[in-house]
């Protein structure tokens, strides 16, 4: 049952974004991240936001669901924001408040908002990828994109196989963990109370059987793979082939437009502190 939590990232509906090629989606996310870091003023960030909104709408994933992924790293965002707010150093600062070596300036405020905004966009964008791409196609996409690395003898096939087998065994091992925890609880094990050392010790009766079982499973799987004629990447074909479609073309065009837009906005509307001149 807990599996669903792990794989819960994937939001199973049919949509424009879901139907895109995983390789294209991975590349688009990279381009999107580039756009975020290129953006140097709020207008450019607004353009990225607009793109994000379009992407989320096209993915048919509810906004709330996408927002939930931000919640997980909210702490990180707040933490960096606070650090930034009080320890921002610049040449000419419009100081608001000062105490010893801590300074609060308008620049710091703007910089912090900018940074938090960027992080927010970053997390929202990448979670659109994981929300619309199931783990298996995602691994396939990564494998396919890494293929050029084969030239430098990087074990791309093995890596992809390991990833997909790991994905495949997560639910099995989760179930197993639950079973062992329940069995040891029935024998009086206590996982809920006690100090750190006591709790760490309490994990042993779960960890050891889990490891033993994982090894046994690995051995079985090895036999099963051998029996099914597995002998490495050599001479192996692939059943699933990824194909780019018109959707990916649309995505590529939109992203190209976004990056071009961000660059133009940067050039014509100045840096992020330009708005300060208007007010102060």
């Amino acid at each position: 049952m807990l599996n669903d939590v792990i794989f819960g990232q994937y939001y199973p509906v049919r949509s424009f974004v879901h139907n895109m090629d995983p390789r294209a989606k991975i590349l688009f996310v990279i381009a999107y991240i580039v756009a975020i870091f290129l953006a140097d003023n709020f207008y450019a960030l607004a353009a990225v936001t607009l793109f994000l909104i379009v992407a989320v709408l096209a993915s048919r994933v509810p906004f709330g669901r996408v927002l939930r992924s931000v919640k997980m790293i909210l702490f990180l965002i707040i933490f960096t924001a606070i650090l930034n707010l009080f320890f921002y150093a610049g040449n000419e600062l419009h100081v608001i408040w000062q105490w010893k070596f801590i300074t609060l300036s308008w620049e710091a405020v703007i910089n912090t908002v900018f940074l938090a905004f960027r992080l927010f966009l970053l997390v929202m964008g990448t979670s659109v990828l994981t929300l619309t791409t199931a783990p298996v196609p995602l691994t396939d996409g990564i494998e396919s994109l890494l293929t050029p690395l084969k030239w430098i003898k990087f074990p791309v096939h093995e890596l992809a196989l390991i990833m997909s087998i790991a994905l495949r065994f997560i639910p099995t091992l989760m179930d197993e963990t639950n079973r062992i925890v329940a069995a040891q609880k029935a024998r009086g094990a206590n996982f809920e109370t006690g100090g750190l050392i006591k709790r760490a010790k309490a994990v042993v009766p779960v960890l050891i059987p889990l490891l033993v079982s994982a090894f046994r499973r690995a051995e079985d799987l090895g036999d099963a793979m051998d029996a099914r004629c597995y002998s490495g990447a050599k001479g192996r074909t692939k059943y699933k082939k990824l194909v780019f479609t018109w959707r990916d073309l649309v995505g590529a065009l939109l992203l190209a437009a976004l990056i071009a837009g961000v660059v133009l906005l940067n050039v014509y509307l100045g840096g992020k502190f330009a708005i300060l001149d208007a007010f102060l």
């Binding site: 197993e176 062992i180 329940a182 040891q184 024998r187 009086g188 779960v206």
Partner: peptide, 29 residues
């Protein structure tokens, strides 16, 4: 739990201690 013993399916998969004696003693402890 002390009064209601529970043997799960394939209970051998919950063995963990270095010796049989220690494993059996786990519940007692």
């Amino acid at each position: 739990r002390a009064k209601v013993g529970m043997v799960f399916q394939y209970p051998e998969y919950q063995l963990f201690a270095e010796t049989v004696e220690k494993d059996v003693m786990f519940g007692l402890k």
